[in-house]
Design a protein around this nucleic acid. Structure first.
Length: 356
DNA sequence: AAAAAAAACAACCGCAGTCGA
DNA sequence: CTCGACTGCGGTTGTTTTTTT
């Protein structure tokens, strides 16, 4: 049969850790090493759940953590990585030595997510080549098994990777950058490094263009903020799925999506790359009327859909022709609407995004 | 200076793949 | 082969701190 429960919830302390508890945990791990979280609280004399001990250690007590003072450079990197990877905090954290997924997630939720929608951050260069190399290596890493990895979405798979946290650096020089962030294998069959570079640079390209024409907002979010690329290519929940690229002369309603496109993204999101895989956030799709001359291969279930297709779609897309309606239901091509007058809600509320 | 609001931080929860019994 | 603990992850909530009124 299985193992004993990790802990009895009753009688366990919760809430903030005291300095004394921290010292006990640090001392214990120094003496016995990480792992065995289930037995750790009992052995160490802590009235905490093993899960809580693990979290405390990983996020706050490890020596290699920086804690706070996230630099503008780090923020910029987080923004770019998030644009490319979505809410894959552990993967993002793996590129920021000394930072935890929790810290980055908190930073994003409390600060960056608000600032990014303004699309007013400085236009910098794209991600450092080393980061791109690392991510490309992750994506090129063959998946040893076809099974999903060890977490619900994309976590480490086997015992080796779980028990011995490794990073991309392990492949290079055996010097882990961030020992407790875990290597993840990503789909291999449809995303080249060039593609990744293109994805990561798309936002900046649009930003650069926007610098010359301030009113050229592109798709916007529920609050009128400009959507990042990730909002359109890696929706994290069904409510964002309306932000998919559209073909010209098309009105897209929720659910009117490209199945292959969504499956591809589902593969990226979950670690599955095979066609036809589904994800929990993938609802029943109904393909809308499409202009096959401008959206080649997307409507054919049998055609191989790749990230390169996505890039073609994104790079060819005319952002000026795509906005979200105030009722948050549809994306509408403005030449379908016929007039920019219909879109005045975009800039009527204070002009945060520039006047037209 | 006090109260209220906003932001930041810390911790918990539940999901889902892995793997030992 | 099945069951269920272990684990890592992302989402969410609760608490504390800072800022604004």
């Amino acid at each position: 049969m299985g193992r004993a429960p990790c802990c009895q919830k009753v009688g366990l302390k919760r809430g903030r850790w005291t300095a004394e508890e921290d010292q006990i945990l640090i001392k214990y791990i120094q003496d016995h090493g990480e792992g065995s979280w289930r037995s750790l609280p009992k052995n160490a004399g802590l009235m905490r759940c093993g899960k809580s001990c693990r979290l405390r250690w990983i996020n706050y007590l490890r020596k290699d953590l920086k804690r706070g003072n996230i630099s503008p450079q780090e923020e910029d990197l987080i923004i770019k990585l998030h644009a490319a990877l979505g809410n894959r905090w552990s993967l993002i954290a793996s590129q920021l030595p000394g930072r935890t997924d929790n810290e980055i997630k908190n930073r994003w939720n409390s600060h960056l997510s608000r600032s990014i929608t303004s699309w007013r951050r400085p236009v910098n260069d794209t991600l450092p080549q080393q980061i791109l190399d690392n991510l490309a290596k992750l994506m090129a890493k063959p998946n040893p098994s076809t099974k999903k990895k060890g977490s619900k979405k994309n976590g480490p798979a086997n015992k080796e990777t779980r028990d011995k946290p490794v990073t991309l650096e392990d492949d290079n020089n055996d010097k882990p950058q961030t020992p407790d962030v875990h290597k993840e294998s990503l789909p291999t069959n449809s995303c080249s490094q060039q593609s990744l570079q293109s994805i990561l640079s798309l936002e900046d390209r649009y930003e650069a263009e926007e610098g010359e024409m301030d009113m050229d907002l592109g798709p916007v979010d529920d609050y009128g903020g400009v959507l990042s690329l990730s909002d359109m290519v890696t929706p994290s929940d069904p409510s964002t799925m309306m932000h998919q690229p559209l073909s010209p002369n098309e009105i897209l309603s929720p659910g009117a999506l490209y199945p292959e496109f969504m499956n591809e993204l589902a593969g990226l999101s979950t670690g599955h790359a095979e066609m036809g895989s589904t994800s929990s956030w993938l609802p029943n799709c109904s393909t809308s009327t499409m202009d096959n001359t401008t959206q080649p291969s997307l409507s054919s279930p049998s055609s191989p859909f790749t990230i390169d297709h996505l890039l073609n779609i994104s790079s060819d897309w005319n952002w000026e022709d795509c906005v979200q309606t105030p009722n948050d239901q549809d994306l509408i091509m403005n030449h379908e609407v016929g007039s920019f007058d219909n879109l005045s809600w975009l800039w009527d509320d204070g002009g945060e995004f520039g006047a037209v």
